[in-house]
Design a protein around this nucleic acid. Structure first.
Length: 669
RNA sequence: GCCUGGGUAGCUCAGUCGGCAGAGCAGCGCAUUCGUAAUGCGCAGGUCGUGGGUUCGAGUCCCACCUCAGGCUCCA
């Protein structure tokens, strides 16, 4: 028989040859490295028989597919190790995830994993790997499978779900697509361990070894809060010790960028216990960053035709009854404050009802539309205690929130210009790698007719597609009142953050009976678009901080320039220089020579100040400064003072994100 | 809310068997006046997350709560 190789060539093999035979026929080094193969795009075991005419490729561990196989096989070895250490444990599923894998278990007697257990499990895994056990695939009927896993309830549940053709396809099992009784596949490592699995796997455990168990966690069976909570171990596995090491370094880098750590180090914000979980205070330096962020957004919104409104933090419950929030969002709200007359007041979780009341405060004409009402609105949401996380998930936040009221026929155009506005604005903050996600009607938790949902969803989809950006579907992920597009941004180290959301809403205008007089002198109902570009100011702050690793662009930096006199007899000149920067509206400071120059430079660098200027005898003489820019190795001496002022001014005015503030400089301490 | 691990000086952390509360950095004082990432000496700083309990004696053992981290679930 003949098979086609990736380079287009054909290879003649004896009938019945396996993928391993193919690798061996190509070369001994490939055969030794091979962990799996692909046949017509499907990843298969090396032991799989090839079919005549198939397009095949050998999979090595240094590819995405290869690492997946490695990780999946390592997960099996971990399960085997856990079952060896905890006889009678039940094991559930063990899929591959980004950069690693996990496996869920139920330990006998309700036991839990502790961090110390990770070392024991790792040691047992290394034994299994040293034993070089083969992964042997078997195919069984469902009944045989149920018998084999008689004492493994989770495996039995998977077999039942999969063979009944349930739509929830599970990664842990495989159904033979052909006629006859449904088959499931298993992999046997040793007489002591067989796992239900779709595969494929490396040929034997000896191919594994560059792994590390990362942490233990609880996880609900099938992600359902109402089902038993299982014990999960997360691990990572790589093709080589070097690759594993590089991954761990990458984790360290992410940790160095952690906005919670940077927030404390740079004295930007904190979460005092005295206030409560998920409630931040911004310190003076963080306050400047935030003020600049907000001021620029205000300017852009004004220019884009938004009108500014303000609304209170609390309201009578009747408003949230009218809006439907008490019916649909009560779980996310703080409990009511009961006042004298028995009236309940609530902290607002959203701004929309207030903006609606502004709209409804007088008669509206088609000439008023689209009406775009903007507010930095602080809202409070009662998040479950386990979910608060730094600035990205808080209980009190400020949204850069606006509601656009427009005619139905204006909707699509408005959405389109809105998306342009969003991407442009985010770009000015230095984010420029986006993808979109379209969230559709949530089942059983939505208001409105199917026709309305379809109309809104279609409009959003058309606008999103018109952008040519990657578009992912989030079926059932919409809010109860309408579908949405969320704009996801990738940061400097490739992580995605959900930022902007744009939601269409036919419901609230209806609930609140909103109207406008059309050109036809008839009453019409406006459409409402909810949108927040930062998502929340707090989250966006955190995202920018991580994106820049604390090296905020100069225009956002709390202190843009620090002037250091070499000796105190240069102090007067340093202060003169300072005045020149301050006169241009720049944020600058001077530190006198009480400490050695090297120490003061180090302090300024650790504070990530974009421009450190040193002035000494020569500068006083010549009217110059020595410029030490963030992200550059060596300073530039003898720059005329006014030239330096102008350079910083241009940096700020242009909102440069590179090189001094951008990701290019992000690696600098 | 659930699972695992934490909370000791402003920060990072040590604290053995239950027996006087420790270090580095930061801060303050004095000296030092220096050309590009840590000058020296000294001083001060703590209700060991909070509240109960066990004990002659608790940072250490037990219980409850608060809070943080990593997950699950959820979401801007």
């Amino acid at each position: 028989m003949k098979v086609r190789l990736p380079d287009g060539s054909k290879k003649e093999l004896p009938d019945g040859a396996t993928a391993a035979d193919l690798a061996a026929a190509i070369g001994p080094r490939l055969a030794a490295a091979a962990v799996a193969a692909t046949s017509d795009g499907r990843v298969v075991d090396l032991s799989a028989r090839l079919t005549d005419g198939a397009s095949v490729a050998v999979v090595t561990p240094d590819s995405e597919a290869g690492r997946d196989v490695l990780r999946h096989s390592t997960a099996h070895v971990m399960a085997q190790a856990v079952l060896r250490l905890w006889p009678g444990a039940h094991f559930a599923i063990g899929p591959v995830i980004a950069d690693g894998f996990y496996y869920d278990f139920e330990l006998p007697g309700g036991a839990r994993f502790t961090d110390e257990d990770l070392g024991r499990v790792e040691a047992a895994m290394r034994e299994i790997i040293a034993e070089d056990q083969p992964f042997v695939r078997h195919e069984l009927t469902a009944d045989e499978g149920l018998a084999l896993f008689a004492d493994q309830p989770f495996k039995r549940e998977i077999i039942q779900a999969v063979t009944e053709g349930a739509s929830e396809v599970d990664a842990a099992a495989d159904v033979d697509g052909t006629e006859g009784p449904p088959l499931v596949s298993t992999y046997e490592n040793s007489p002591a361990f067989t796992d239900l699995c779709r595969g494929p796997h490396v040929p034997s455990t000896g191919k594994l070894g560059h792994f590390k168990l990362m942490r233990v966690a609880g996880a609900y069976w099938r992600g359902d809060e109402k089902r038993p909570q299982l014990q999960r171990i997360y691990g990572t596995a790589w093709e080589s010790e070097v690759a594993l090491e590089q991954y761990l370094v990458r984790l360290d880098e992410a940790e160095r960028r952690d906005h919670r750590r940077l927030g404390a180090e740079l004295d930007l914000f904190s979460f005092p216990d005295e206030i409560g979980s998920g409630l931040a205070v911004f310190h003076p330096k963080g306050g400047i960053v935030r003020m600049e962020m907000e001021d620029y957004a205000r300017k852009r919104h004004l220019a884009a035709g938004y009108q500014f409104v303000y609304s209170p933090h609390i309201t009578k419950g009747s408003l949230f009854e009218e809006s439907g929030h008490l019916e649909w969002f009560a779980d996310g709200m703080y409990p009511p404050m009961e006042l004298d007359g028995g009236t309940s007041y609530y902290l607002k979780p959203m701004n929309c009802p207030f903006h609606i009341l502004v709209y409804r405060s007088s008669q509206r004409s088609y000439r008023d539309l689209p009406m775009r009402l903007f507010e930095f609105g602080s809202v409070y949401r009662y998040e479950k205690s386990g979910v608060v996380h730094g600035l990205t998930r808080v209980r009190g936040m400020t949204q850069d929130d606006a509601h656009i009221f427009c005619g139905r026929e204006q909707m699509e155009g408005e959405l389109d210009s809105l998306l342009t506005f969003v991407l442009g604005l985010l770009g000015d903050y230095g984010l420029d790698d986006f993808w979109l996600e379209l969230s559709t009607k949530p089942e059983g938790k939505a208001v409105g007719t199917d026709a309305e949902w379809t109309e809104a969803t279609t409009a959003l989809r058309r606008v999103a597609q018109g952008r040519g950006l990657e578009l992912a579907m989030d079926e059932g992920g919409g809010a109860f009142y309408g579908p949405k597009i969320s704009v996801q941004a990738r940061d400097a180290i490739g992580r995605s953050w959900q930022l902007s959301t744009i939601q269409v809403d036919f419901q609230l205008p209806q609930r609140f009976g909103l109207e406008y007089n059309g050109a036809d002198n008839a009453k019409h109902r406006p459409v409402m678009i909810h949108r927040a570009l930062f998502g929340s100011v707090e989250r966006f702050f955190g995202v920018l901080l991580e994106h820049y690793a604390g090296n905020m662009p100069t225009w956002l930096s709390p202190e843009q320039v620090r002037v250091l006199p070499v000796r105190d007899d240069h102090l007067a000149y340093a202060e003169h220089a300072l005045e020149r920067f301050v006169a241009q509206g720049l944020r600058a400071g001077v530190e006198d020579a009480a400490e050695p120059l090297g120490t003061r430079i180090r302090k300024a660098k650790l504070e990530k100040i974009p421009y450190v200027l040193v002035v000494g005898d020569q500068d006083v003489e010549a009217g110059t400064v020595g410029v030490n820019r963030r992200g550059e190795d060596r300073p530039t001496r003898g720059v005329p003072l006014e030239e330096a002022v102008e350079a910083v001014r241009r940096d700020v005015q242009g909102r440069w994100t590179s090189p001094t503030g951008g990701p290019d400089a992000a690696g600098m301490a």
